[in-house]
Design a protein around this nucleic acid. Structure first.
Lengths: 352, 352
DNA sequence: GAGCATTTGGCAACCGGTTGTCACAGACGT
DNA sequence: ACGTCTGTGACAACCGGTTGCCAAATGCTC
């Protein structure tokens, strides 16, 4: 037995309890190979100029030879810097969202940060708990979701660098698109087509950007003397568009603007099912220019925002904030671009 | 000087070098509050049953009172378990991919794992380096991409638990969809419509699943006595479909099957631009049933795979592998479902 | 109530880096 | 020649957990 045990404990070490992570070299190995102290290795690798050029060269060579990769966890422990960012979204499959994610991912990767995605799908509570879970292991958070109350967000922002996308919680830095300009372009287009009564199918009640768009629409209606109505939708999805359709028709508007393209597409589908011709009898427009907007027939008129850039900008702002410890003042709202396609046309002579 | 130094080291400690991470409680705080040793706290929290129920209760209470959250980094350091999984994809914005990601995210979250996304976009080398970067900080990898050579994948799989989606590198566990069945259903449908000459617009040459589909198509062609041709596409995107269109027409087939829906959509767009009517003059079908497939007109006939489930299954298989240390034998290929829509119709009496 | 097996909790080492402090070396000035 | 200054590298403590080992405490049997 005893012999057996010692045999087990000896060289072979079947499941390698001494090598928790795959045989990676550590700074100690490098130190030994280069004949210096581990602390010198650490400094040579992370504090340029702190050690002499000669020593640094020697250490670099040794590190390369051993194919050294720093252990992020070990580094994060004493420094608190995890080199990881979280982006919290409500629904990954929302085409709007993944463009943002991609932009964020690029920006993060180019600064050697890793991005983790948290999807909160349902309730704000799930979202809060996801954030809570992630908090200790990230250096900052990009919040691209609408489920959380502004004060909750502000609270979180007090504990960790945070940038919100398309919402402006007080005291929290954010990246937003220029809703006023976007709506102005779109309404200008519709007015030019002769529309005087316009419906707006809103997003979730908690959505800051939906509220912004509605506000901008109100302002435009005053300027142009339009009739505008706000129509609720259950959710910012195709189903939300379906659900809102009857109220759209009931409102007798000649043009309807969806909070986003998904809602607009939902409305178009219902219109098609009901035999209502778009744009002859009803003009439809949306926001975001998601994939699919130009596939549907007629192709959807929409306002494009550069979501990749929004995501990237959020990450950049976040990194800046991490750097200097204080939130950066917000950049200008991001420009938007009206994309006119087939779903909008002249106001019909006689309303439905 | 000396007095100054001691003063500096004393209480105030302006930027709190003692509190690297936001005032989080540690197991030491809990230990103090509960009047036990930190190691006991550690065991109470992570090794159920190791300490007496009474002590555990006391510790739990203290932990709750201090709002304790374990520091994942500190735990990962000695154990090597990071509770993090990586999923490597070629292109986040590909609709096929994000469904998979969502499934993976759900499965990971429900096992308290965090998911990090790595997009490799371009070259296989970027992909390899991303993996290399992530390696030390994840417990496993889901590979949903085609850019890496099988032997490279096998090599990585030797160093870290890995599951491939839609490819079958030797000796690596994987989750794949049932290409034979998918193709069989689709071809059955086309044959029933009278098609006898069918084109297949392939995905990237490195794509295992594209090769599988082509193989299955060959087998079906023998069974049904069809003429089939393989047509290259630059990339598995709408643009790839555009690029392949002329060769499709030149081949004089009556039906064309795209490696995926994006390619199929690209072909349909070109056909529309050229005035070729789908499905009257050309039937088009794809794979995956992505968002947008039913928006395009005519709606795309396609073969749906449950990608959410594929992602989830990959993660589950990965977790099982992490648990018992040995790769799990692969599950059955995942079933698929033919979705017949408007883009396929009877073979035209006289070919183009 | 003694003897023994089994829990239970504490000690201390360790994971792999970072960093404050300090000693020593060499460069330099006078 | 000496003292000083600057630059360099080493020592050791620390980040916040985990875990092997051991001794004390407890429970059990007879």
């Amino acid at each position: 037995m005893t012999t057996n045990e010692t045999a087990d404990a000896a060289e072979p070490a079947s499941d390698a309890p001494k090598r928790p992570r795959s045989g990676r070299a550590t700074i100690y190995d490098i130190a030994e190979l280069a004949g210096v102290n581990p602390s010198t290795v650490s400094r040579a690798l992370s504090r340029p100029g702190r050690v002499s050029a000669k020593t640094e060269e020697k250490i670099r060579r040794a590190a390369a030879e051993l194919n050294f990769r720093i252990n992020p966890m070990a580094r994060a422990l004493p420094t608190g810097r995890t080199m990881t960012l979280a982006v919290v979204v409500a629904d990954i499959t929302n085409p709007v969202v993944f463009r943002t994610i991609r932009g964020a991912e690029r920006a993060a990767a180019s600064s050697n940060y890793t991005l983790v995605i948290a999807e909160s799908q349902e309730s704000g509570s799930a979202e809060a708990s996801a954030i809570e879970r992630l908090l200790p292991s990230v250096d900052g958070i990009v919040l691209a979701t609408t489920r959380l109350a502004p004060e909750v967000i502000a609270d979180i922002a007090g504990r960790v660098p945070l940038v919100a996308i398309n919402s402006r919680p007080p005291g929290v830095s954010s990246v937003v698109t220029d809703a006023a300009d976007a709506v102005s372009q779109l309404i200008g287009h519709l007015v030019a087509l002769g529309h005087t009564s316009i419906g707006y199918v809103a997003g979730p009640p908690t959505s800051w950007s939906s509220a912004q768009r509605w506000e901008a629409l109100l302002a435009e209606s005053e300027r142009h003397g339009l009739a505008v109505v706000e129509i609720p939708s259950g959710s910012p999805t195709i189903e939300g568009g379906h659900a809102a359709y009857r109220r759209v028709i009931a409102s007798r508007v000649t043009a309807v603007v969806g909070f986003n393209d998904l809602i607009a597409i939902g409305i178009m589908q219902e219109a098609a099912a009901a035999g209502v011709r778009v744009p002859d009898e009803l003009s439809v427009a949306g926001f975001d220019d998601i994939f699919g907007s130009e596939l549907i027939v007629p192709a959807l008129t929409t306002v494009r925002a550069d979501l990749d850039r929004a995501g990237a900008q959020a990450v950049e702002s976040l990194l800046a904030q991490i750097q200097d410890g204080r939130p950066r003042e917000d950049a200008e709202p991001m420009p938007t671009e009206l994309i006119v396609r087939g779903s909008t046309g002249p106001a019909s002579a006689r309303p439905l």
